[in-house]
Design a protein around this nucleic acid. Structure first.
Length: 587
RNA sequence: GACCCCGUAGCUCAGCUGGAUAGAGCAAUUGCCUUCUAAGCAAUAGGUCGCAGGUUCGAAUCCUGCCGGGGUCGCCA
């Protein structure tokens, strides 16, 4: 099972091959001139160039070969060699019934699944999650869902910042505040308390304080360094404190990601790979991959063909500490050990592009990456309406939970304004508001190209008209309501009949979904699916206005329209699910 | 300074492995709720695709140069 254009491409490819031409020229696409035809094939033009022949003549020969195929209602030539194609209504109806009967809605399962590790987290212990984590989460989780649906094995790793100097700062901060705690008593033998000595709020307050003090006071910084070193060497009391910090932070992260509907398979962090670093570094040193330079241990990654000077990756600083590039390399080792991925995709802010060039080159140079490829999907900055990186009105960084609360609150306001759900329970209204809010947020992000910067405009996102997540939810929910009403009057979706005048556009759209999914998959561009979903919702809204379903007198036609509506719903929900957007039952 | 990304309608953005007349949404104007949720639908208007060259039968798309905006460039992450 494939999309309509893929099916027609297979037919056209054969026709090209029969003329002794490369079947790759048989690419069939949706027509750019729907007034002339449903589909088109431009392959004759490219084939003519390659074979140095007249394009019109090639097009004529291919068209002649295609005329033998009964799926076509009309085949004509236009311009320098466009082949315009339209299919029969019977073919369209047959295709619709097949898709409707396919649990995957026409999307084939990938023949050779790959193991794909996606890295789209990066939250830090003790620091509240903020809008900076938003894009990675939204884009990465969507990609994970898309890859999984297409047929790959996927592992999403949150890859927390839970190690290093920041942890030493926090531990020493606690020790300064409460030196009497058993964690800091070197002679303490008994089991440490199960309860955390600090709350999340306290932890979040401690970090900026400690960080500021360390910046201002070298002695304070030295104390943090020492704590870091002792932590890494395994001092039991410090490890126990670290575990508390980790646990309460992870709990908060899981809540935030959960509210966003973002899933991770692995909750690993930098600490997990700490023990892999010394042997890795030792090995790289021994093999001459890493060399000493200015007191540091570096891996040169410069290449002849570089247009600019690529600085080396610094493995060990001159003070003996590891860097985040070191941790990233150790993480690659860990992933090869655990998942042995065919692909690793890092969904990280594009400003870290150079860092990943260094890490990837170092990994390849050291031969630690196993069989896989490494790819950095750098997404653009989320800016405010002033074009500068998004900030709160006070100029600070906005917390993720504040943001979600804000947009859910806005959604609730809109629901009330439109008099929707007045008779629903408080809990259901809150659930709907959260879904609508998250849909607004995610869809706005995912309908942009990941690479480009984008403007986060709460006012614009909160207006739920137009090309927005809420519009899509609205479209889906309307169909759900329709199906419920149909069931109540005893109607069931049936066999899809040959299209009436005005029904073809909807069918053509329904037959296109695999193209959108394949494009999104191939280009790592969820916006392909977002675009498709919006187009489908629009075409259906038009249809919904023009064709009344429940009041149709002919039972067979009623059942056919109902089946189309149900198929629209299935495709919409699938697309939304691939974008990580949940659809409420009603709104 | 070098390198990377971006520049498309008043605004926010799709489209970029070359194809016919460059698409959406918002904002503007005009219609449509005694039939399935009007967060909707129909219609009108809005463009030197940053500029200048080049390649091609054909360029928003590929190449070169320039202009404007953003980013990155050895011991932070």
């Amino acid at each position: 099972m494939t999309s309509l254009t893929q099916q027609l491409t297979a037919i056209a490819a054969e026709a090209f091959q029969a003329q002794g031409l490369d079947p790759a020229f048989g690419q069939v696409i949706i027509s750019g001139r729907p007034d002339l035809a449903q589909f088109q094939c431009n392959g004759a033009l490219a084939a003519a160039k390659a074979a140095k022949q007249n394009p019109r003549a090639i097009a004529e020969k291919v068209a002649e070969a295609l005329r033998g195929n009964p799926v076509f209602r009309d085949i004509s030539l236009a311009g320098p060699g466009f082949i315009n194609l339209s299919v029969t209504d019977a073919f369209l109806a047959g295709a619709m019934n097949r898709i409707a009967g396919d649990p995957r809605l026409g999307q084939p399962v990938k023949a050779k699944p790959e193991m794909v590790v996606l890295d789209y987290g990066g939250p830090n212990i003790a620091k509240p999650m903020h809008v900076g984590h938003l894009r990675a989460a939204i884009i990465g989780d969507a990609l994970r869902r898309i890859f999984k649906f297409v047929g790959d094995e996927t592992v999403g790793d949150v890859h927390m910042g839970d190690w290093g100097l920041q942890m030493g700062m926090l531990i020493s901060e606690l020790e300064i505040r409460r030196p009497d705690l058993p964690y800091f008593d070197a002679g303490f033998a008994g089991p440490y308390p199960a309860e955390s000595p600090v709350t999340l709020a306290e932890l979040e307050e401690m970090y900026p304080k400690a960080s500021g003090d360390c910046k201002a006071d070298p002695a304070r910084l030295e104390r943090a360094r020492l704590a870091t070193a002792e932590l890494q060497e395994g001092r039991p009391g410090y490890r126990a404190v670290w575990q508390h910090f980790f646990d309460i932070s992870v709990e908060a992260m899981k809540r935030d990601y959960g509210n966003l509907g973002v899933h991770f398979d692995l909750w690993k962090g930098e600490a997990c790979v700490n023990d892999l670093i010394p042997p890795m570094v030792e090995d790289m040193k021994k093999r001459g991959i890493a060399i000493e330079d200015k007191g540091a241990l570096i891996i040169p990654v410069k290449e002849e063909s570089d247009k600019m000077d690529i600085p080396p990756l610094i493995l060990i600083k001159s003070d003996g500490a590891a860097m985040y590039g070191t941790t990233d390399l150790a993480t690659i080792v860990d992933r090869v050990n655990c998942q042995n991925p065919d692909r690793s995709i890092y969904v990280v802010d594009h400003r870290q592009g150079l860092h990943f060039v260094q890490v990837f080159r170092a990994a390849i140079k050291a031969g630690i990456n196993g069989k896989g490829t490494l790819f950095h999907l750098g997404y653009g900055t989320m800016n405010g309406t002033d074009g500068k990186p998004f900030k709160t009105r006070a100029g600070g960084v906005m917390r993720l939970d504040d943001l979600i609360q804000m947009i859910s609150g806005e959604a609730l306001k809109k629901l009330t304004e439109h008099g929707l759900g007045g008779d629903y329970s408080e809990a259901e209204r809150a659930d709907i508001a959260r879904k609508v809010g998250v849909a607004a947020l995610k869809f706005a992000d995912l309908s942009n190209n990941p690479i480009a910067n984008y403007v986060f405009d709460l006012d614009r996102f909160s207006r739920f008209e137009g090309k927005t997540g809420p519009y899509l939810l609205y479209a889906a929910v309307r169909v759900k309501s329709l199906l419920r009403k149909a069931a109540a009057q005893g109607d069931k979706p049936g066999s899809i009949l040959a299209p009436e005048e005005g029904e073809r556009d909807l069918m053509l759209m329904l037959g296109q979904m695999p193209n959108a999914i394949n494009d999104a998959y191939g280009e790592l561009a969820p916006n392909r699916i977002a675009d498709f979903a919006f187009n489908l919702a629009q075409v259906f809204s038009t249809y919904y206005n023009a064709f009344h379903i429940l009041s149709e007198k002919d039972a067979a036609i009623r059942a056919s329209r109902l089946a189309l509506a149900e198929l629209v719903l299935k495709e919409l929900e699938l697309c939304l699910d691939l974008l990580g957007i949940a659809t409420p039952e009603r709104m």
